[in-house]
Amino acid sequence: MQLLINWIFSPIAFSIGFLTPLIAQICATLDMQFGSLPVLAASLLIAVTLGVVAQVRGNWLWQRP
């Protein structure tokens, strides 16, 4: 249970669950391309990178003092 709660509230879950489709929709709206890489794959890459950084730092924007 604790593991499930930790996972749902983790930055990585947020990056996959929300940021990935959000970035993909923004890219589609702005007609952005990533060469041969599909937009959804590129969005996943960007979102998960942000999520991993946030997970390691403990915050999305800043290192908590």
Partner: peptide, 17 residues
């Protein structure tokens, strides 16, 4: 969070945001 994720993966990510 689950509502946000569901909306986002249903094509309404910008609207949810």
């Amino acid at each position: 969070l689950l509502i946000l994720f569901t909306l986002a993966w249903s094509g309404y990510a910008l609207e949810a945001a």
